[in-house]
Design a protein around this nucleic acid. Structure first.
Lengths: 194, 194, 194, 194
DNA sequence: GATGAATGAGCTTTCATTCAT
DNA sequence: GATGAATGAAAGCTCATTCAT
């Protein structure tokens, strides 16, 4: 039986190699070496190089979604929920920079696959934000003239751009926590009813 | 004499092909065909495939910067300046979607070249935002507890994520103008002193 | 495991193809076809086209050196040693014309590699001649006013030029043995009537 | 009218570039630049790249033959004639190293053209040696058991190998004159003690 | 005659994928 | 299931040659 362990080792290796070299510059042989398996073994677990990226994306985003959901469910205040989302994303960056790097790259790759996935997994992730915004609006905490569908993208985009900065600039002036606070602050002031 | 016209034709073709297929999937032959020149001709104007991307980035971002600067110089109110920036970026997307698509890809490509350029040309572009924020703070229009260096990334990230949405979703629910207004609104409420 | 057998098959094929077309006109595909392997397989055994030539040179000249050494060690008389050297070289030509052809080409190729190798492997080969001359001088068989360093080049050059003749003129008037005898004779006894 | 001057400038440039890089690594553009003409101009004087090499060979060897003939005609003694030949060749090397370098390369290139030319121009050159040997034999100065056809190759080969040495080793232990004397001496008197 | 921009055929090399062991 | 040697299609790039100016 194909071991789940080996599948996972390959995914971990792929994250590392893709983050390091980018998808197209990464060679199957690099991933195999990093995972400690033979080149051919990878094809017992994945259909092709692209399938590794796809599986990686699917599996990891699932984990992220369930993690952030768990955190948000602990909160009742939409303001604190938004803060929790931001902290979770930037902490993820801190703890698993390579994964965030790969996800960033992937989301800009102009390939039909992404265009498909954006409509499912990724949307599920950022829809968490729009749900929170909607809740806030219902509770009259957030302005009702803001479209949640725009707010979610603006909020995620803001966090993601900070992430990009840290990926490229390993010794930033501000800490992830500080940045999360600031971005929350801008958005909460911006969203809140006065 | 090598014509500037041909240089330009190749750049235009490259934008189209890179946007369509991505840098790595684009073949030199595709660009040559699109530009209506022979494969070898490309090498009279560019050192290699990568150099096309680099030149494209350099030249186009220069144009964008000078355009947006011109628009902002017409305004005196920082609030209107931020709005002008947003409208400019999203209009650029509307008018030259392929260029924005290529720039987005490029900025996530994990290559040493980008890591270099982020520090120069791109920073010059988004620093326009932090300058505006700083002005707003001096005029006591914007909150002083917001770090301009974080605000600039948040603002650009928000716009860029909207751009990404439109690139992938050609028939959006909201118009560029509408989205620009909304994002401005969130940030201005978020930034403004009360 | 990469088989030594395949390495050898490629070297044999390369000798044939290089001899036939010359290094620069030889295509990797030609060598691959001749060796009965795929183009890519060659790159499992050699770094690049040039590396094939280099390896070929290194390996074959090593064999030649050890062969001729063995022959010379059987002799005690420097005169017979010189004869043995000549016969060995011209027999090599008879039995492996293509190899000699490649070595000839290689030794004239104006590349930095040859300029390097001349100083090592090839020098080791022709120094066999100067050692013999020196022995002959010590034994008072050879004139002492002849510089062994010049004699070695003259002797090898004479043989090599004969080789060149046979490579280009497949049906020569004289046999290799005959030519070897004559060249030996000229060198040993001189041209002048006594 | 095509100027003979330009034809010559191109030949001079080709000798330099071929000597420097070898025929196959030399680019037409290199020769054009060295000659101070446009790339296209070369094709007004030569049919193709190969034709430059061919013309060069033909023209230069003609000059060499007439030069050495003139020198030999001054002598009556075959021994002195042989010496004159050797000195001429090694002086040529001293004065026009690049030309000798190109001729050496050319004579080993395994191309049908050379196989053709060996039979005409080059043979004419080294036949000068066999003629001298024959004269020496008629005058009973040289041993009659030596085949002039072998002696000519041995003599030229010896000189040529010295030339090769100097091309690669620019600061040799012996001067051209010294080497010419030695090689003459070996051939004329033989190696054996008498 | 001279130019040099343009051409495009040709070749080396890479690397995802396969499959015999 | 695991291996890694072998495959061969694919593509970037070079450069001899052409031809409009």
């Amino acid at each position: 039986m194909k071991s789940a362990d080996k599948h996972d080792k390959i995914i971990r290796a792929a994250i590392k190699v893709f983050a390091d070299k980018g998808f197209f510059n990464a060679r199957i042989a690099d991933i195999a070496k990093e995972a400690g398996v033979a080149d051919g073994t990878i094809y017992l677990y994945f259909n092709n190089k692209y399938d590794i990226l796809l599986s990686l994306f699917e599996e990891e985003i699932d984990k992220i979604i369930s993690e952030v959901r768990k955190l948000i469910d602990k909160e009742t205040d939409p303001e604190r929920m938004l803060a929790a989302f931001a902290h979770h994303y930037l902490n993820l960056l801190r703890d698993n920079k390579e994964l965030v790097e790969v996800l960033q790259m992937e989301l800009r790759q102009s390939t039909s696959f992404i265009k498909e996935y954006r409509k499912t997994k990724f949307v599920e992730y950022i829809d968490i934000i729009s749900e929170i915004v909607r809740q806030g609006q219902q509770r009259e905490q957030f302005r009702k003239d803001v479209l949640p569908g725009i707010a979610k993208r603006a909020y995620f985009g803001a966090l993601d751009e900070m992430a990009r900065h840290w990926i490229l600039q390993p010794n930033p002036r501000y800490s992830p926590g500080e940045a999360a606070e600031q971005i929350c602050s801008i958005f909460l002031y911006g969203l809140k009813t006065k």
